[in-house]
Design a binder for these strands. Sequence first.
DNA 1: TCAATATGTTTTCTCGAGATTTTTAAATAC
DNA 2: GTATTTAAAAATCTCGAGAAAACATATTGA
Lengths: 235, 235
Amino acid sequence: MNNNVVAEGLAEPKTLVESAYRALRRDIIEGNLAPGEKLRVEHLKDNYGVGAGTLREALSLLISDALVVSQGQRGFRVAPVSLADFEDIAQTRVMLECEALRQSIAMGDDAWEADLVAAFHRLAKAEEKRIGSEAREEWEERNRIFHEVLIAACPSRWLKHFLSILYFQAERYRRLSLYLQPIPRDIHVEHEALLHAAINREADKAAAILSEHILLTFRSVQAIPAEQLNAKLRA
Amino acid sequence: MNNNVVAEGLAEPKTLVESAYRALRRDIIEGNLAPGEKLRVEHLKDNYGVGAGTLREALSLLISDALVVSQGQRGFRVAPVSLADFEDIAQTRVMLECEALRQSIAMGDDAWEADLVAAFHRLAKAEEKRIGSEAREEWEERNRIFHEVLIAACPSRWLKHFLSILYFQAERYRRLSLYLQPIPRDIHVEHEALLHAAINREADKAAAILSEHILLTFRSVQAIPAEQLNAKLRA
DNA sequence: TCAATATGTTTTCTCGAGATTTTTAAATAC
DNA sequence: GTATTTAAAAATCTCGAGAAAACATATTGA
C-alpha cells in the first residue's frame, strides 16, 4: 500500500526507477502510449533515458496499478481498454467511493472541512482558465485532490488504496474520450453540490450526487459512437 | 489485473522472476520472512538462486499485493502488520466479498453450482486429514479455491481482483496466529451453511454467514493476548 | 495452393560488476 | 557525558552484455 498520492505530487522522485515509473504512468494515462501497445524494453529505455533493468522494474511497478500487463516470456503491454471494463470500473468505484464518503462525512472534523473547502476553491480557480494543456494538467491534478480530500476522513486505508487505483483507471478512460463528450454537463455545479452536501453532513444526498457524478462520466463515454471511440483508442 | 489464481496454481512459472515472486510470496504469507523485516537483495539472491536484478523485479511485483513495501533509496521490507490493519482488511473484505457473493448468487448457473459443490467436497476431504504441514498446505489451497468459486459468477473483474489481494493479506494474519486460536469454531459447519445458502439462492442469509465467517477470524486474532501475539509476530 | 519444417532475426530474460547513497562506527570538540 | 563531525562499511541502485525464447521469413514437400 504505497502512495499517499497527495504527498507524491510534491515529493521529488529519489531514484531513476521512480522517475521512469511516473513518466510511464503519465504517458499511459494521457494516451501517449496506446492501450494494448507493446512496450519494448530495448526501444523505451532510450526514450526514458534509463537502463534496461531499470525500465523493467518500473514496468513491474505499473502492474500494481493495472496500467501494464505482462505475460511470461512475451514482454509487457499497455493494459487494454474496453467499454465493459470502464463500466466495471465506474460501478466498483461508485460502490467503494460512496461508502468511503459516508464514513468520511461521519468522521470528518473541522480540519477536514477546511481542507475540503480549500480543495474546492483551488479546483474552482483552475476551472476558470481551462484553456491550454498546462491549465488542463492543473485542473486534472486539483480534481483528483478534491476527490481525495472528500474521502480523506474515511479511516480505511484499504478502501482509499483501492480507490486511488480506480481513480487513475477512470482518468485514463476519461482522457481518451475527452474532446468527444456528447452529454452536456456542468461539472462545477456537480462539485459544488457535493461540497455542500458533505459539509452539511448529508450523507445520503452526498452519496447520491457522487454516484451520479461517476456514472455520468461513464455514460458520456458510452454515448460516443463506436467508430469515433475506436479511432481515438487506437491513436 | 494479473492473476486468475485458480489457474496460477496449475501453470508452471515460465520465468525466474515469477519463480522468485511465488517463493517470496509464500515465505511472506507463511511468516518465514517476518513482518517489517528488511529484505536485503545481496543476501536473498543466493537463497532464491537468482541474480540481483531478477530478485528486485520479483520484489517490485510483490508491491502489487501489498506484501512488500519499498522506500526510495532505502530498499525493500516485508509489509508490517498490526491489529488495526487486520481489522481494516476484515471489514473491507466483508463489504466487498458480500457484495460479490450476492452478485454471484444472482448470476450463477448450473455449472457454477457444480463447481461449488466440487470445491466444497475437496475442501471437506482435506479437512479430515488435517495433520502435517503438507495436509495443511492442501487445506489452505482448497479453502482459498472454495472462497474463490463462491464469488466466481460475479461479473466484476475488479471486485474479484481486489478480493484476491485481501484474501492473501488475511491468510497471512491467520497463519501468524494459527496455533493460538482461543475462540472455538467449527469451520466445516460454517462452510457447509455457506454452501447451502448459496445453492438455495438465499443471498441475504449467505451474506450474513460469510460476514460472520470473516469477522470471526479477526476476533480470533483479536482475542489473543497481546504479549503472545507480539512474540509470534516477531518470530 | 497449402501445410510443415528449417533458418535467421528480434526481443525478452538474466546476470555480475561499478557508481551512489545510506548506515554504522569512531573520533573529536564542547 | 553529550553532541557534532569524519571516515569506513554496507547496501542500494544502475548499467550493458550475454543466453534463451519467441517471432518472422524462407524453403521444402505434398
